[in-house]
Structure formats: C-alpha cells, structure tokens
Design a protein around this nucleic acid. Structure first.
Ligand SMILES: [Zn+2]
Ligand SMILES: [Zn+2]
Ligand SMILES: [Zn+2]
Ligand SMILES: [Zn+2]
Lengths: 166, 166
DNA sequence: ACAAAGATAGTTATATTATAACATATTCGT
DNA sequence: ACGAATATGTTATAATATAACTATCTTTGT
C-alpha cells in the first residue's frame, strides 16, 4: 500500500492495515536501533486487530489467552510505553485506550475522530486544524510540546444506520 | 468583570475569577432549577482556587481537611459529575484533573493550553480552531457530539524564565 | 569465548482513579 | 404533613497504572 487515505470508517481490506503497520514498525525500529521484541510486536498486532482503541487490560487478557504463563500488567504497560515512545501507537486519554498509528514515520499530533456507536477511531490529518492550533499558540505566546484532539460523535456509518450494534 | 480575556497565564486579580465564577454558577443553576448544594459549591470553589487543574483526590483531601467527618470518593465524584453536567467545570483527560470554566453560560468545546512547567491551564476560544475542526468533521461525514483539545507545552511565563519551580 | 554492562521481562505488591450498591437524610410539590 | 424525588453517607470494589526487585537475555569489549 502506498499513499494512505483515512479508512477506519470505510470498508477496506484490513489485513493490509495490519501488514503495513507491522512492516513499518520493523523498518522504523531497525533504523532507530530500537528493539521490537516479541512481546512488543505481539501487543502492536493486537492493537492493530481493528480500528477500535483497546485498553491495557483488554490487551492483557488477550495476551494471557495466547500464553501459557500468566501475564502481569507491567508486561503490557512496558510494551505500550515502548510503542508510544516510538510513536507506533497513540493513547486516547478520554477512554484510556490505545490505537495504532497509520503514519508512524511522519511526526504529527494526536488528532482523532472517535465514534460513540461503533467505537472505531480515525486519525485526522488536517493542515487546517494543525495550523489553526499552531497559530492560536503563537498568538498566546505558548510553546507547544504535544497535543491531543479527541472528537467524539457518530461516524458516517453509524449516523446513517439508525440502528446500533453496541 | 465583563468581557473576559484569557488570563490564566497573565498576572491578574484572581479573586475576581473566583467571585465571577461563583456568581455565574449560582445564576445558571437558579435559572436551570439545578441545585448548587453546599458540597457542590465547595468543590467548585476549591477548583477555582487557582488556574491549575485539580485531581479528584486532591479535592478530596482538601475537603477532608475542612470537614470534621470523613469524606469519601463518591462525595467528590458526585459533585464533579454535577459540575460537569452543568458545564461549570471541564475535565482534562490527559491528567485526570478538573478546571473551572470561565464561560459556563456559553456552550463550547473543551480546548486548553496546559503548561508543563507551572501546571496552569488556559481555555482557548479560537473561532479558527473550532471552525477548522467543524470543517474537517463535515468533510469526513462525522457528526460531532463533543470534543477535547489538550495542548501541552510552556506558557509565556515559563518559556522565558529559563528556571523552573517544578 | 568470556565477563561485564545494559536492556528486557518476570513477579509481587501497591498506588491512583473511579464506580457500584445500599442506607440515610434532605428537599420539593401537593 | 405526606410521599416522591433528589442528594448525601457509607462500605466495598472495580479499573487503570506504577514501584521495586529479581531473573533473563543481548550487546559489547577483551
Ligand atoms: Zn484497517
Ligand atoms: Zn498517528
Ligand atoms: Zn484567575
Ligand atoms: Zn469552558
């Protein structure tokens, strides 16, 4: 896959998302000399299983299922810390959950649309949004270090289909 | 006080902020038939003691100090729930903390600058930011219900004073 | 190959944030 | 005053996250 359009809310072949993400992760970590260990890659894969942000304990449960040994919280949180540091995932603070980043190679803020109905999240990459925030900060004399925009509502699918599956 | 300019990061007579906020809260609750009880008002006052967002348990501790009886978490969380419902306060999800709203009468999204150094928070009211988000949502076919923007960095004071007090 | 240093993972315990469930008290409309 | 609705008190627990220590694995210099 080449240029990526937002597609969390669009019907698509999701296996491409997963393979792209894993490939990119391997490439990035190799280049940076960061170690994408088995656990870290496993957590990244679990996060990428869908476009719905997943909580740490949901990941923990899924890891535990696949493992013979018990899995403790630090195992998951350390993997998440690594993936966050490498910017391979984003944290959605409002729901204490984590989602894969489709553009890990390209530095950017954490801007999301989050569907209240189906739970899916889509990254926003709007120059207009970014620039207006940058401009507001400049005018306020504020030196931005990081930012997160979490927009909740109904995705195109869920707003038209009156019914719900949640 | 009449038209309010952002002032969390500016030297100002903070007692005006507090009295304005309490006055507005009383007026709004009266108009809505909502009951701003003693506890709720106390929590609102504690939140307004500064422009630094406060966590639930910090509020709990302060309430406990002023009270003879023990204070339990639900007491604080219920008051916070009420204040959030009435939009008298905002929640800053990234730091699990709460901050007073200087414009509770006027419906608006939760957009903040948050200083990593001094801890203060200032509400952003930028048409440009709001409009760009609205536009991005429309283009994506996304129906916005709520939103939060949390921009972290250094406020004008802290970016110039090289030294830190944190 | 080997040992030392550093990084990763296992393990146990605990901190922090938030809510459930039920009992009691207060307020409000009649 | 009465009953219904709302608010508070109380106890317990859920959900999220980290601290601290041990053991293992990986890298690096010799
Ligand atoms: Zn996909
Ligand atoms: Zn991203
Ligand atoms: Zn003030
Ligand atoms: Zn506000």
């Amino acid at each position: 896959m080449t240029d990526k359009e937002p597609l969390a809310f669009t019907r698509h072949n999701h296996s491409h998302c997963v393979s792209d993400a894993l490939q990119a992760a391997v490439a990035i970590c190799t280049e940076r000399g960061a170690r994408l260990t088995a656990i870290r890659q496993q957590v990244l894969e679990l996060i990428w299983q869908s476009h719905k942000p997943l909580g740490a304990y949901a990941l923990l449960d899924q890891l535990a299922e696949k493992s013979t040994k018990p899995v403790a919280p630090p195992t998951v949180y350390r993997a998440l810390d690594f993936l966050l540091e490498q910017k391979l995932i984003h944290r959605i603070a409002a729901i204490n959950a984590f989602i894969g980043c489709p553009h890990p190679d390209h530095n950017h803020a954490s801007h999301f649309f989050l569907c209240d109905d189906c739970g899916r999240a889509e990254e926003i990459h709007s120059k207009s949004v970014s620039n207006s925030i940058k401009k507001a900060a400049t005018e306020a004399g504020f030196a931005v270090q990081s930012q997160s925009l979490e927009v909740f509502g109904l995705c195109p699918d869920c707003r038209t289909q009156d019914g719900h599956d949640s």
